[in-house]
Design a protein around this nucleic acid. Structure first.
Length: 426
RNA sequence: GGGGAGAUUCCAGAGCGGUCAAAUGGGGCAGACUGUAAAUCUGUUGGCGUAGCCUUCGGAGGUUCGAUUCCUCCUCUCCCCA
């Protein structure tokens, strides 16, 4: 199965320029995708494009990951319109290194003959003078052409307008493609469907400036069946960096996807073959309550992004918290397992002396630990049966003391079904 | 510059002198059901406490026994005519 066919059955093609498939059939081709280096970690919103590069490399082509040190400074009008800050070079390099480390989990940067390669457009942009840019790049593209782009048009019609800087964005990105075409023989740029306009400016620039033929391929935006935005939770982005999003939370994110979404995500985010995926979906439909799709999806992605050990820990934690876990099984845990299971769960400390005397449950849940922002809220939730300590529901006139401690040091407070809080005796 | 409308608890949006911590809907949170789902149903959604009290309805004053509701000024938003 070739690259395009592979993407096609996975539903990862939104649009591509004519001739792309023929070009790829000619032999090993190079393609690139750009990443924003404004953070030192990628998030799962980047996952679809990463997978495009993975499939690309697996099909025997050479993938390039570009970090947009230069473009990141300008701000792409296709996305949100907030002003961006200039990143200084040190941070930029740091972010680039972190991003490369994450990409190494997916792409092979060492294999032959098609190792992945990382580039930073800051390298060929930083010395580029304004005049030089106007003469060398701006001359080839008409303003009429640029204005016709949806991203620009929308902003021109809106009350806020568009700054010259952001207007120029497509030229800077287009120049990247041009540069890579010339110096790295890159023939194809890929990305999310929102990047189509920018990518095509690149192919246009290549045609006019270099007389070359380059191609564009985009994948659809990842959607959720309920219309919500993919990749966001109440607590923000889901990051690939375990420091920012713990493997447990990461695993939970995928486990909690809806049936429809899971079927879509298995195709897009795992490397299972078409037969395997069809089989999984069929199996899931036979017995949806087993949630085979979600479990397989969560396992596969967690292992690839983190590790087998992280997956096992996340699984263990999940079973303990949602499955057969009860007061007894909690008490049996060693301190080490306890801490690893609740890694990433919010914590607060309580002085040993207070526990010795005993604390009123309401004070304990509000002032003492900050789990609830007011006593009323704590009281209300207890009445509703929404508070558990060490997996046992609590009542209002309870006093918390040392007998509640696990391993003589910890206490697990649960607000509702999914919100855990680890209390540590200080 | 002239004329008009409005600013209410997370959002939308009622209230138009006491019965208003403030209708209703949405959202959030929780409970039941369940597959750690969806749908549905129920409860809850200022603080302290559970008698009641305290701080809230753009800001500052005023009228009144009493104001979210009336008056004055200020700030901001929107609409129409120039």
């Amino acid at each position: 199965m070739n690259f395009i066919e592979e993407l096609r059955w996975r539903g990862m093609i939104h649009d591509m320029s004519p001739g792309t498939e023929i070009e790829l059939e000619k032999g090993m081709t190079s393609a690139y995708i750009g990443y924003d280096p404004t953070s030192d970690s990628l998030h799962i919103g980047n996952l679809a494009s990463i997978m495009m590069l993975v499939h690309f490399q697996k099909a025997g082509h050479k993938p390039f990951a570009l970090v947009g040190g230069a473009t990141g400074m300008i701000g792409d009008p296709s996305g949100k319109s907030e002003e961006r800050n200039l990143l200084d070079e040190d941070i930029l390099r740091h972010n680039q290194n972190c991003i490369q480390k994450q990409l190494e989990k997916f792409l092979d940067f060492k294999c032959n003959p098609n190792p992945a390669e990382m580039v930073n457009n800051y390298d060929w942009t930083k010395e580029f003078s304004f005049l030089h840019f106007l003469r060398d790049v701006g001359k080839h593209i008409t303003v009429n052409y640029m204005i016709a782009k949806d991203s620009v048009k929308n902003r021109m019609n809106s009350g806020t307008g568009i700054s010259f800087t952001e207007f120029s964005y497509q030229l800077v990105q287009g120049y990247d493609f041009c540069w890579l075409f010339e110096h790295k023989n890159v023939r194809l740029q890929m990305g999310g469907s929102d990047q189509w306009g920018n990518i095509v400016t690149g192919t246009e620039l290549i045609r006019r400036k270099l007389g070359g033929e380059a191609y564009a391929l985009t994948c659809p935006l990842i959607t959720k069946a309920d219309g919500g935005k993919f990749g966001k939770t109440e607590s923000g982005n889901v990051w690939l960096d375990p420091e920012k999003t713990s493997p447990y939370k990461f695993y939970q994110f995928w486990l909690n996807t809806s049936d429809e979404d899971a079927a879509q995500y298995v195709k897009k985010f795992t490397l299972f073959t078409k037969e395997q995926v069809d089989h999984l979906i069929a199996e899931h439909q036979l017995s949806p309550h087993l949630r085979i799709l979600q479990k397989t999806l969560a396992k596969d992605i967690t292992i690839r992004v983190h590790s087998e050990a992280d997956y096992n820990a996340a699984l263990e934690a999940s079973e303990l918290l949602f499955g057969k876990g009860n007061n007894e099984s909690l008490k049996k845990l060693s301190e080490e397992t306890l801490l690893s299971v609740f890694d990433g769960v919010p914590r607060s400390e309580v002085p040993a002396s207070a526990l010795k005397e005993g604390i009123d449950i309401i004070d304990f849940l509000s002032h003492e630990t900050g789990i609830f922002s007011s006593k009323g809220e704590a009281r209300r939730m207890i009445k509703e049966g929404g508070v558990q300590i060490n997996k046992q529901k609590v009542i209002e006139d309870l006093r918390i003391n040392e007998t509640f401690l696990l391993n003589e040091k910890y206490m697990l407070v649960q607000k509702g079904k999914k919100n855990y809080h680890l209390i540590i005796k200080n």
